[in-house]
Design a protein around this nucleic acid. Structure first.
Lengths: 187, 187
DNA sequence: CGCCGAGTTGAACTGAATCAAGAAACGTGG
DNA sequence: CCACGTTTCTTGATTCAGTTCAACTCGGCG
């Protein structure tokens, strides 16, 4: 819980009243390794904060698992499309390590928005920061080679390489596992 | 101006007071074809609504122009990274057709946020919708072939093909102009 | 007319995928 | 603590989508 407060403060400090209301609306969720937080076809109406552990978002395409993000400590997690549009998504969220999360439902969050302007501002700001990250990833995907993308990952998030199997990283980078293995052996 | 009001209403209706405050803060901008709204290295501290015309965002990479979005009527336009972080960006925004925009400065917008909670909500919601679009593009880039990406563009935004030169579309799709030309001749 | 930018077409090349086989690492039960 | 199957990773050979370089076509316009 403390981790969440600290994380929030980095984006936008909120009033004590807002923080108290938020904590009341949160529920603690413990999930074991290899379970699923979200499965394709369901509506994900919760937003999570990941306090401990690690997760992975992927979907199935032509029988293959296509990873498109990893979540670690202090990340906000949800099946974004589904959470926002309130429709079933195609995304699976798998638990890669025993994890502790704090969850809030879409309804509760919107109620809090009505009562606490600063909470809505916080979320707006977080959204914007996540948008920028996504933009960077798109750029890398569109205009960089497999090797460059791997090297960029090495620089910006070396922790990923220690905690995630190679095949999943390859998929995240948009390349085959064999290619990533070869790239890695050359560096 | 009417177009903006209609566009906003699709995302989230706002109060009359908020709308009036917003219109007071907006300035009309007319820009001729081939001019630039934003140049790399500068801080873009304005958010625009494009009423008429069309624009293109690109940046220079190894001497090549890399297009990563097009803006048409009723789109919101800015150099997002720069606008949010208030730092110089590497993005150029070029005017492809004579255009009419409505602009608001970052400061004015934030002042409005303080006074009108519903305006901040509106922006939060718009941000979320733009995030979803970006997510879709990333997916396409990561896991679809050049042909599939082109066909997807044909379906979702055929108007782009009529208004934008081939080379820029190719760059937007992350492929070479020659490849796009060949793909097109086969369909 | 001749130039110029935009688009097309061809040939050679290349980065990365795929297919296939084997080597390590890992967890589980005996 | 070892034997087993399973998963993860590596390595090689082949194939293919897409790039690059280069030449050529076409339409517009001074």
């Amino acid at each position: 819980m403390n981790a969440l407060h600290q994380c929030i403060s980095q984006y936008h400090p909120i009033s004590i009243a807002a923080w108290e209301a938020l904590t009341k609306a949160l529920t603690r969720v413990e999930v074991p390794k290899n379970s699923f937080l979200v499965k394709e076809g369901m509506v994900c109406n919760k937003l999570y904060f990941l306090e401990r552990g690690c997760l992975r978002g992927y979907y199935n395409l032509d029988g293959k698992e296509v990873t498109y993000w990893f979540g670690f400590e202090n990340n906000f997690i949800t099946s974004f499309y589904s959470f926002i549009s309130r429709k079933p998504g195609i995304e699976n969220i798998q638990v890669l390590e025993d994890s502790t999360l704090w969850g809030i439902s879409s309804e509760a969050l919107h109620q809090l928005f009505d009562q606490h302007h600063d909470l809505e501002r916080l979320v707006r700001i977080i959204n914007e920061q996540y948008y920028i990250r996504l933009e960077e990833r798109l750029m890398a995907m569109q205009f960089k080679t497999a090797r460059e993308r791997y090297e960029q990952l090495l620089e910006t998030s070396p922790h990923i390489l220690q905690r995630i199997p190679l095949g999943q990283i390859a998929s995240y980078l948009g390349i085959s596992q064999e290619t990533l293995s070869r790239i890695r052996s050359q560096v």
